[in-house]
Protein backbone atom coordinates (compact mmCIF):
# COMPACT_ATOMS: atom_id res chain seq x y z
CA UNK A 1 0.00 0.00 0.00
CA UNK A 2 1.43 3.37 -1.06
CA UNK A 3 0.18 6.60 0.51
CA UNK A 4 0.89 9.95 -1.13
CA UNK A 5 0.01 13.41 0.18
CA UNK A 6 1.95 16.36 -1.25
CA UNK A 7 1.58 20.10 -1.43
CA UNK A 8 3.89 22.48 -3.20
CA UNK A 9 3.78 25.95 -4.69
CA UNK A 10 4.90 25.45 -8.27
CA UNK A 11 5.98 28.21 -10.60
CA UNK A 12 3.87 28.24 -13.71
CA UNK A 13 4.50 30.97 -16.24
CA UNK A 14 5.99 33.29 -13.64
CA UNK A 15 3.14 32.87 -11.14
CA UNK A 16 3.19 30.60 -8.12
CA UNK A 17 0.31 28.15 -8.04
CA UNK A 18 -0.65 25.74 -5.30
CA UNK A 19 -0.30 22.12 -6.34
CA UNK A 20 -1.74 19.43 -4.14
CA UNK A 21 -2.18 15.73 -4.62
CA UNK A 22 -3.47 12.94 -2.43
CA UNK A 23 -3.90 9.30 -3.32
CA UNK A 24 -3.57 5.78 -1.93
CA UNK A 25 -2.38 3.00 -4.13
CA UNK A 26 -2.59 -0.78 -3.73
CA UNK A 27 0.68 -2.68 -4.12
CA UNK A 28 -0.43 -4.59 -7.15
CA UNK A 29 -1.89 -1.75 -9.12
CA UNK A 30 -1.00 0.71 -11.85
CA UNK A 31 -1.99 4.31 -11.28
CA UNK A 32 -2.35 6.33 -14.45
CA UNK A 33 -1.98 10.09 -14.33
CA UNK A 34 -2.98 12.37 -17.15
CA UNK A 35 -3.83 16.01 -17.60
CA UNK A 36 -3.04 19.07 -19.70
CA UNK A 37 0.59 20.03 -20.16
CA UNK A 38 1.96 22.14 -17.34
CA UNK A 39 -0.43 20.69 -14.78
CA UNK A 40 2.40 19.27 -12.68
CA UNK A 41 2.54 15.64 -13.83
CA UNK A 42 6.32 15.47 -13.98
CA UNK A 43 6.64 17.58 -10.83
CA UNK A 44 4.48 15.09 -8.97
CA UNK A 45 6.80 12.22 -9.88
CA UNK A 46 9.86 14.29 -8.93
CA UNK A 47 8.24 15.20 -5.60
CA UNK A 48 7.72 11.52 -4.86
CA UNK A 49 11.28 10.63 -5.90
CA UNK A 50 12.67 13.42 -3.72
CA UNK A 51 14.06 15.49 -6.61
CA UNK A 52 11.89 18.46 -5.64
CA UNK A 53 11.52 19.76 -2.08
CA UNK A 54 7.84 19.74 -1.07
CA UNK A 55 6.16 22.33 1.16
CA UNK A 56 4.23 19.58 2.82
CA UNK A 57 4.45 15.85 2.21
CA UNK A 58 3.65 12.49 3.63
CA UNK A 59 4.69 9.63 1.39
CA UNK A 60 5.06 6.03 2.44
CA UNK A 61 5.39 2.71 0.73
CA UNK A 62 4.35 -0.46 2.50
CA UNK A 63 7.85 -0.90 3.89
CA UNK A 64 8.97 2.62 4.82
CA UNK A 65 8.11 6.28 5.24
CA UNK A 66 9.87 8.17 2.45
CA UNK A 67 9.08 11.61 3.73
CA UNK A 68 6.96 13.14 6.45
CA UNK A 69 7.43 16.86 6.79
CA UNK A 70 5.37 16.90 9.98
CA UNK A 71 7.60 14.39 11.77
CA UNK A 72 10.74 15.73 10.12
CA UNK A 73 11.52 12.45 8.42
CA UNK A 74 13.18 12.64 5.03
CA UNK A 75 14.80 9.70 3.32
CA UNK A 76 17.65 10.71 0.94
CA UNK A 77 16.97 10.23 -2.78
CA UNK A 78 19.25 7.26 -3.28
CA UNK A 79 17.99 5.50 -0.17
CA UNK A 80 14.33 5.62 -1.28
CA UNK A 81 13.42 2.40 -2.98
CA UNK A 82 11.69 4.42 -5.66
CA UNK A 83 12.83 4.23 -9.27
CA UNK A 84 11.90 6.83 -11.84
CA UNK A 85 12.20 6.72 -15.62
CA UNK A 86 12.52 10.15 -17.20
CA UNK A 87 10.75 11.47 -20.26
CA UNK A 88 14.03 11.93 -22.13
CA UNK A 89 15.91 8.76 -21.53
CA UNK A 90 18.79 9.92 -19.35
CA UNK A 91 21.34 7.18 -19.97
CA UNK A 92 25.07 7.19 -19.28
CA UNK A 93 27.10 7.78 -22.47
CA UNK A 94 30.21 6.09 -21.08
CA UNK A 95 28.60 2.71 -20.43
CA UNK A 96 27.42 -0.21 -22.57
CA UNK A 97 24.07 -1.78 -21.74
CA UNK A 98 25.81 -4.45 -19.71
CA UNK A 99 27.85 -1.83 -17.83
CA UNK A 100 24.67 0.13 -17.10
CA UNK A 101 23.16 -2.91 -15.47
CA UNK A 102 26.29 -3.71 -13.48
CA UNK A 103 26.45 -0.09 -12.32
CA UNK A 104 22.85 -0.06 -11.11
CA UNK A 105 22.79 -3.46 -9.44
CA UNK A 106 25.82 -5.72 -9.52
CA UNK A 107 24.07 -8.58 -7.76
CA UNK A 108 20.91 -8.74 -9.86
CA UNK A 109 19.92 -12.32 -10.48
CA UNK A 110 21.39 -13.63 -13.74
CA UNK A 111 18.55 -15.72 -15.13
CA UNK A 112 16.01 -13.03 -14.35
CA UNK A 113 18.23 -10.47 -16.08
CA UNK A 114 18.52 -12.63 -19.20
CA UNK A 115 14.76 -13.02 -19.25
CA UNK A 116 14.23 -9.25 -18.99
CA UNK A 117 16.81 -8.50 -21.70
CA UNK A 118 15.09 -10.98 -24.00
CA UNK A 119 11.61 -9.66 -23.22
CA UNK A 120 12.71 -6.08 -23.96
CA UNK A 121 14.57 -7.09 -27.13
CA UNK A 122 17.92 -5.83 -25.83
CA UNK A 123 19.77 -9.16 -25.57
CA UNK A 124 21.79 -8.59 -28.76
CA UNK A 125 22.88 -5.06 -27.84
CA UNK A 126 24.50 -5.78 -24.52
CA UNK A 127 27.87 -4.34 -25.58
CA UNK A 128 26.37 -1.28 -27.26
CA UNK A 129 26.70 2.32 -26.07
CA UNK A 130 23.59 4.53 -25.84
CA UNK A 131 24.54 6.68 -28.84
CA UNK A 132 24.21 3.58 -31.03
CA UNK A 133 20.74 2.70 -29.70
CA UNK A 134 17.44 3.75 -31.25
CA UNK A 135 15.02 5.92 -29.27
CA UNK A 136 12.85 2.91 -28.51
CA UNK A 137 15.82 0.84 -27.35
CA UNK A 138 16.93 3.63 -25.07
CA UNK A 139 13.47 3.86 -23.56
CA UNK A 140 13.36 0.12 -22.96
CA UNK A 141 16.84 0.21 -21.42
CA UNK A 142 15.75 2.97 -19.03
CA UNK A 143 12.76 0.88 -17.93
CA UNK A 144 14.98 -2.20 -17.59
CA UNK A 145 17.40 -0.26 -15.36
CA UNK A 146 14.52 0.91 -13.18
CA UNK A 147 13.38 -2.69 -12.74
CA UNK A 148 16.94 -3.90 -12.07
CA UNK A 149 17.27 -1.42 -9.19
CA UNK A 150 14.68 -3.50 -7.27
CA UNK A 151 12.26 -0.68 -6.41
CA UNK A 152 9.29 -0.70 -4.08
CA UNK A 153 7.60 1.88 -6.28
CA UNK A 154 8.12 2.55 -9.98
CA UNK A 155 7.50 5.97 -11.53
CA UNK A 156 7.28 6.28 -15.31
CA UNK A 157 7.18 9.65 -17.09
CA UNK A 158 5.79 9.38 -20.66
CA UNK A 159 7.53 6.06 -21.27
CA UNK A 160 5.91 5.26 -24.61
CA UNK A 161 6.68 8.31 -26.72
CA UNK A 162 9.51 6.62 -28.61
CA UNK A 163 7.91 3.18 -28.86
CA UNK A 164 5.86 1.82 -31.74
CA UNK A 165 2.53 0.20 -30.91
CA UNK A 166 3.87 -3.34 -30.86
CA UNK A 167 6.83 -2.76 -28.56
CA UNK A 168 4.67 -0.54 -26.39
CA UNK A 169 2.30 -3.44 -25.82
CA UNK A 170 5.27 -5.72 -25.07
CA UNK A 171 6.56 -3.29 -22.47
CA UNK A 172 3.13 -2.84 -20.97
CA UNK A 173 2.54 -6.55 -20.61
CA UNK A 174 5.97 -6.91 -18.97
CA UNK A 175 5.05 -4.12 -16.54
CA UNK A 176 1.73 -5.80 -15.77
CA UNK A 177 3.58 -9.02 -15.06
CA UNK A 178 5.92 -7.25 -12.65
CA UNK A 179 3.02 -5.59 -10.90
CA UNK A 180 1.29 -8.90 -10.36
CA UNK A 181 4.27 -11.16 -9.64
CA UNK A 182 6.36 -8.77 -7.54
CA UNK A 183 3.43 -6.74 -6.23
CA UNK A 184 5.23 -3.64 -7.53
CA UNK A 185 3.06 -0.52 -7.59
CA UNK A 186 3.54 1.66 -10.67
CA UNK A 187 2.65 5.29 -11.30
CA UNK A 188 2.45 6.06 -14.98
CA UNK A 189 2.26 9.58 -16.41
CA UNK A 190 1.09 9.92 -19.99
CA UNK A 191 -1.05 12.13 -22.16
CA UNK A 192 -2.27 9.08 -24.12
CA UNK A 193 -5.46 8.62 -22.12
CA UNK A 194 -6.66 5.69 -24.23
CA UNK A 195 -3.67 3.55 -23.32
CA UNK A 196 -3.95 4.48 -19.68
CA UNK A 197 -7.60 3.49 -19.63
CA UNK A 198 -6.70 0.14 -21.09
CA UNK A 199 -3.90 -0.77 -18.68
CA UNK A 200 -4.32 1.14 -15.45
CA UNK A 201 -6.09 0.00 -12.35
CA UNK A 202 -6.94 3.57 -11.54
CA UNK A 203 -6.80 6.77 -13.57
CA UNK A 204 -6.49 10.31 -12.23
CA UNK A 205 -6.89 13.36 -14.41
CA UNK A 206 -5.04 16.35 -12.95
CA UNK A 207 -6.70 19.72 -13.43
CA UNK A 208 -4.79 22.60 -15.02
CA UNK A 209 -2.95 24.70 -12.45
Amino acid sequence: MVAIRVEKYLEVGGAKKQFSFACDLEDNSILGITGPSGCGKTSLLKLIAGLIDPDFAYISTGAEILISTKEGIECPIDKRSVAMVFQDQALFPNMTIEEHIRFVNKGFQKTELERLLLRLGLDKQRNTYPDKLSGGQKQRLAILLALVSDPQLLLLDEPFTALDDETRDDVLSLLKECVELKRLPVILVSHQTAILQQFCTKLIKLPAL
Binding site: A49, G50, L51, I77, D78, K79, R80, S81, V82, A83, M84, V85, F86, D88, A90, L91, F92, F103, V104, N105, A142, L145, A146, S149, L155
Partner: peptide
Protein backbone atom coordinates in the same frame (compact mmCIF):
# COMPACT_ATOMS: atom_id res chain seq x y z
CA UNK B 1 22.47 16.71 -18.26
CA UNK B 2 20.63 17.06 -14.94
CA UNK B 3 18.36 14.15 -15.89
CA UNK B 4 21.35 11.87 -16.15
CA UNK B 5 22.56 12.64 -12.64
CA UNK B 6 19.04 12.48 -11.21
CA UNK B 7 18.38 9.18 -12.97
CA UNK B 8 21.47 7.64 -11.39
CA UNK B 9 20.33 8.99 -8.05
CA UNK B 10 16.80 7.56 -8.18
CA UNK B 11 18.30 4.25 -9.24
CA UNK B 12 19.85 4.20 -5.78
CA UNK B 13 23.40 5.34 -6.42
CA UNK B 14 25.30 7.48 -3.92
CA UNK B 15 27.05 10.72 -4.84
Amino acid sequence: PNDMLQFARVLGKGK
